[in-house]
Structure formats: structure tokens, C-alpha cells
């Protein structure tokens, strides 16, 4: 079954078409990476899929729920970790997790269980009582992803999760994303080619609101006749014509 299916999904802002007739199907449990240069339409696509922005035309279905007519049900099945570190700075790590539990309407028992579960999964135990503002960038991103998982989503959106992190923090976060893989569907946007290549089942490359290429990293390299994935990406972007595999 498809976790996400978009049908001619389009977003226009006055004279600019940010996303143009996007047709895409993402399988359940898949880790799908969306790549593209700045302004390609990746974040707008995620914003539409997470009900933050209404499409100008077209529709998308998340677990069968329309983003136009079933937003309440869509919101129940998604978790979002935005590009910026979206945490409450003066709350401790534990309070940030509890805040999300409260927002999802969990009982006291479930709140305690869920907080303990995610603290263990993300190794947050040592910093549970530390204020979020005092954490390093890497720990804030960990917390951000943990917060996105509180609502037990089937679909997780990670918008440039490792942006600005050092190599070690990035690799730590990759390990966490690998652990989540297969359990839930993950949509990842990134500027790091090796991140997309190492983590994703399939990759979509966008340019000027269009999906130019779609396939596994190996398939995209073979199509672009390059050895490195980064070269394949550059070739596809420069070629500009659609290569859907």
C-alpha cells in the first residue's frame, strides 16, 4: 500500500510555481529522499503534505486521507521535524517531550511511558533535565525528531535534519534514522548527497517545482552514467529533462 500518493499536486505563489503537477507514490515503510537545489520545491512539497500549506490544485493522500478534506486525520498520522530547530527553549528536554504528549492528549500513564521510551531510544537520559536552549545543535535535532515521534506517526517528515551539524553529530543522527527505517515511512529532504545515498530506499530529484528523476541511488547513477551519486545529481539537474525510473 502507498503511504503517500500525490496527484498533480501544484502550488503557485503569484507568478512563481513552486511545485508543478507533482505525481508521486511512496510506499509504506520506505525512506524516501527529496533532493534539489534551493528553490526546487522540496520544502513546499513537505509543507503541503503536512497540511501547513494548501495546494493551489491537485491533491495528496496520506494513508488514504486527503490533505484537502481530511486534514484532521492526516495530522493524526504524521510527525514533522522542521528545518529549524523547533523546540521550546526554556523547557527541559523532558518537558518538551511531555508538552508534545499533552498536545496529543495522552493520559498520564501514556505520557510517562512514551517519554521514557523516546528518552531511551534517543539516548536523552543524561540531558532530560537540561533546558533545550542549552543543548548543542546535534542534541537539539535529536530532541526535535523525538518530539516528532511522540504522536506515534506512520509518516515522518524530516526537513534537512542534519543541516549545520558537525560530522559526528550527523553520523549519530544517521544511526537514529536507520533505526527508524522500515518501522515508519520517512520523507527526508537534504542537501547532502551522501546522506540521501546512504539512507534512502529511493530518491526523487526536483528542480523548479518538477520531479526530474526518481529511483534508487544506483539506478540514478546508472541512468546518468556516473560513478558518484553527486555527479549523477549534477548531471540530472543540468540536463533538466525528466528521468523517472
Amino acid at each position: 500500500m502507498n503511504a503517500i500518493e500525490t496527484k498533480k499536486l501544484t502550488k503557485r505563489y503569484k507568478d512563481l510555481t513552486a511545485v508543478d503537477g507533482l505525481d508521486l507514490a511512496i510506499n509504506e515503510g520506505e525512506l524516501f529522499a527529496l533532493l534539489g537545489v534551493n528553490g526546487a520545491g522540496k520544502t513546499t512539497t513537505i509543507k503541503m503534505l503536512s497540511c501547513l500549506t494548501k495546494p493551489t490544485s491537485g491533491d495528496a493522500y496520506l494513508n488514504g486521507n486527503s490533505i484537502l478534506t481530511d486534514t484532521a486525520n492526516v495530522k493524526k498520522c504524521i510527525g514533522v521535524s522542521p528545518q529549524e530547530t523547533a523546540v521550546a527553549p526554556n523547557l527541559t528536554v523532558k518537558e518538551n517531550l511531555e508538552l508534545m504528549c499533552g498536545i496529543h492528549g495522552f493520559s498520564k500513564e501514556k505520557k510517562e511511558r512514551k517519554t521514557a521510551e523516546l528518552s531511551e531510544q534517543f539516548d536523552l537520559g543524561q540531558i532530560l533535565n537540561k533546558r533545550a536552549a542549552k543543548l548543542s545543535g546535534g542534541w537539539q535535532r535529536r530532541l526535535s525528531i523525538a518530539m516528532a515521534l511522540i504522536g506515534e506517526p506512520n509518516i515522518l517528515f524530516l526537513d534537512e535534519p542534519t543541516l549545520g551539524l558537525d560530522v559526528l553529530a550527523r553520523h549519530d543522527l544517521w544511526e537514529i534514522i536507520r533505526i527508524l527505517k522500515d518501522k515508519i515511512t520517512i520523507i527526508l529532504t537534504t542537501h547532502y548527497m551522501e546522506e540521501a545515498e546512504n539512507l534512502s530506499d529511493r530518491i526523487g530529484i526536483m528542480k523548479d517545482g518538477h520531479l526530474l528523476a526518481l529511483g534508487t541511488a544506483e539506478e540514478l547513477k546508472a541512468t546518468a552514467k556516473t560513478e558518484k551519486f553527486e555527479d549523477a545529481f549534477v548531471a540530472i539537474i543540468n540536463e533538466g529533462s525528466e528521468v523517472v525510473i
Binding site: 514533522v80 529549524e84 523547533a86
Partner: peptide
């Protein structure tokens, strides 16, 4: 708004 915390919360049942 600037830290995108609101953006995250807009995707929840609030």
C-alpha cells in the same frame, strides 16, 4: 514563529 516551533505545532491536533 522564527524557531519553527509553531510550524511543528500546526501539524499537530492543536
Amino acid at each position: 514563529r522564527e524557531s519553527a516551533l509553531l510550524q511543528r505545532l500546526y501539524t499537530t491536533p492543536l
